[in-house]
Amino acid sequence: MADEKEIPPGMKDEAAEFVPFDPSKKKKKKKVLIQDPAEEAEKLAEKTENLTVSDAPEPSFVGMKKKKKKPVETEVVSEEQEDAGEDLDGDHAGEDEEGEGIVLGRVRYPWEGTDRDYLYEELLDRVFNILRENNPDLAGDRRRTVMRPPQVLREGTKKTVFVNFMDLCKTMHRQPEHVMTFLLAEMGTSGSLDGQQRLVVKGRFAPKNFEGILRRYVNEYVICNGCKSPDTILSKENRLFFLRCEQCGSHRSVAPIKAGFVARVGRRKAGT
């Protein structure tokens, strides 16, 4: 017990090394399944049942079955200590990579097969797994709204046309003017909307450039700080812009429209 208590801090470091190892991980898992003597297995099965009461029923059953089957095979008690320690790492990685592992009924939690204390992170993982199983839309991994990549054409040699500018504005639910001022301020050029509501910008820009700036725009003026949802409304209240989230109702002020302007001289000595 005391030994196992001491393992965890070291394991943190090992975890990084063990992640890429696939075969070793698999092996470890099997060993853990194999290892226990009969009575302990029963005890563990009880424990897992207790642990998974709040769960959907079938995974816990599967786990039990495995446990019951296990003692038939050979037992490697001497290796148990080390394996149990390393198993934690393997399992962590496993949970990250394959969500369906839970249903398959391998060892579900790193603390199974050992009688050490639970680590906070492990319990947290468990909570999130349960949450994800039972109601998938609650657990934080909400599908992000995907924005289409900006389509960019060159007009002549010195101008760039941002074709789907309007579409992107619509998907973001922002005023095109607002987006445009931001884009132009960031790129330090001038530009305008043309007849087909495309944005014409002076200078040469690659689509990647637009993408980077739009990403920044979204982070600053679209995404809600609290819940990360893009479902927000930008409103102007006596000269200040406020961002209100439609999902969580949070409200925050946003830096004024334009982030100052460049002292732009340089471009050819025009005048002076």
Binding site: G188, T189, R204, A259, V262, R264, G266, R267
Partner: peptide
Amino acid sequence: VHVRIQQRNGRKSLTTVQG
């Protein structure tokens, strides 16, 4: 401190440091 870039003609550019 704002660090900006500005395109000039060709592939030339200009960096400004403000603030």
